[in-house]
Simulated assay, not measured.
Amino acid sequence: MVTGAGSGIGRSVALAFAGAGWSLALAGRRADALEETASLAGGADVLCVPTDITSPEAVTALFTAARERFRRVDLLFNNAGTFGPGGVHLEDLPHEAWRHVVDVNLTGSFLCAQAAFRVMKGQDPQGGRIINNGSISAHAPRPHSVAYTATKHAVTGLTKSLSLDGRPYRIACGQIDIGNAATEMTARMETGVLQADGRTAPEPVMDVDDVARTVLHMAELPLEANVQFATVMSTTMPYIGRG
């Protein structure tokens, strides 16, 4: 199962899994975007379920549909997320914008993980794997990104708790922290983004398919092995050291 599968990292990961022979349950807000991803999946067995991951009822319906179609869920890639309004100073961030980012990035990830636990504990053979999409922002923030950064730090705590709580049930959980993958969301990187020292400067990006290959590697490990945290980033982006 891939959330946020209608574009960007989610679509790229879904297509990598399709190419490796996986059956796919694709979740996202827009049915047309999910169907477009499915059309690119080269004949893979694909189920598209338009889903608001902030709704417990919608998430329950998503996992019910996946079980009815495939009889089990072996992997959840908890990918759906939002950055929120860009360039807004902390003191000007509307409460509604803060809540929206928290609801999607944190609560949505929790609800999907919770539903995955319920399925994975009860299926035979028992177990499965959850991979959370964190971010470089789980380690270091960008200017004016308080909601996004706070939620991505929280996702790291979610990953650790899921890993611990999943041990008795053969449920493995890891996290991939991604920096500057080339998607619609990061298109502005190449033209210039605000840096910590106040400059606006372009940043390098990497091919999103490199992220997809990493997620596929994490997913195809036996449940006795786990990539707990992986960081995949553009080699020269301003993160390590002083840039």
Results as ranks from 00 to 15, higher is better:
Ala147Arg: 12
Arg170Pro: 05
Tyr148Asp: 07
Asp197Leu: 00
Gly192Asn: 04
Gly192Met: 05
Gln126Met: 15
Gln123Pro: 06
Gln126His: 08
Ser137Gln: 13
Gly174Ser: 08
Arg188Phe: 10
Gly174Met: 11
Ser135Pro: 15
Gln195Met: 09
Gly192Tyr: 01
His153Ile: 11
Ala172Met: 14
Gln126Trp: 06
Thr200Cys: 01
Thr156Pro: 00
Ile178Asn: 04
Gln126Phe: 05
Arg167Leu: 05
Asn132Ser: 08
Ala181Glu: 03
Arg188Pro: 02
Ser163Met: 13
Ile178Pro: 12
Gln195Ala: 03
Gly166Lys: 03
Met189Thr: 05
His144Met: 14
Asp177Trp: 11
Thr200Ile: 13
Val155Tyr: 01
Gly174Cys: 07
Pro141Met: 01
Leu164Phe: 11
Leu162Gly: 07
Gly157Ser: 08
Ala140Thr: 15
Ile131Glu: 12
Gly166His: 09
Ala182Ile: 02
Ala172Lys: 12
Thr159Val: 11
Gly128Glu: 02
Gly157Thr: 06
Arg170Asn: 06
Asn180His: 05
Pro143Trp: 00
Thr149Leu: 00
His144Tyr: 14
Ala172Val: 12
His153Arg: 14
Gly179His: 05
Ser145Arg: 02
Pro143Tyr: 00
Val146Pro: 14
Asn180Cys: 05
Thr183Gln: 03
Gly166Arg: 03
Ile136Met: 13
Glu184Thr: 12
Pro168Ala: 08
Asp124Cys: 09
Ala154Tyr: 06
Ser135Cys: 14
Ala201Pro: 08
His144Pro: 04
Thr149Glu: 03
Tyr148His: 09
Ile171Arg: 03
Ala140Tyr: 12
Ser161Pro: 06
Val155His: 01
Ala140Glu: 10
Thr200Gly: 00
Gln126Ala: 09
Met189Val: 07
Leu158Val: 07
Tyr148Val: 09
Asn133Gln: 13
Gly157Cys: 06
Ala187His: 05
Asp124Val: 10
Gly157His: 04
Thr186Lys: 01
Thr191Cys: 03
Ala172Leu: 09
Ser137Val: 14
Ser163Thr: 10
Met189Arg: 10
Gly128Lys: 10
Ser137Leu: 06
Ile136Tyr: 14
Ala187Leu: 04
Asn133Ala: 13
Glu190Ser: 14
Cys173Val: 12
Ala140Gln: 14
Thr191Ala: 06
Ser145Gln: 04
Gln195Thr: 00
Met185Leu: 15
Asp197Arg: 00
Asp177Lys: 14
Tyr148Pro: 13
Pro141Glu: 03
Leu194Ser: 04
Ala147Leu: 10
Met189Asn: 15
Arg129Tyr: 01
Lys152Gln: 10
Ile178Ser: 03
Leu158Met: 09
Gln195Arg: 05
Thr191Val: 08
Gly192His: 02
Asn133Met: 15
His139Ala: 08
Ala140Arg: 13
Gly192Gln: 02
Leu158Phe: 05
Thr186Ile: 01
Gln126Arg: 15
Arg170Trp: 02
Val193Glu: 08
Glu190Tyr: 00
Ala147Glu: 12
Gln123Asp: 02
Gly127Asn: 10
Pro125Trp: 10
Ser163Ala: 15
Lys160Trp: 07
Tyr148Glu: 03
Tyr148Met: 03
Ala187Thr: 06
Tyr148Trp: 10
Cys173Ile: 02
Ala154Glu: 04
Gly127Gln: 11
Asp165Met: 09
Ser145Leu: 02
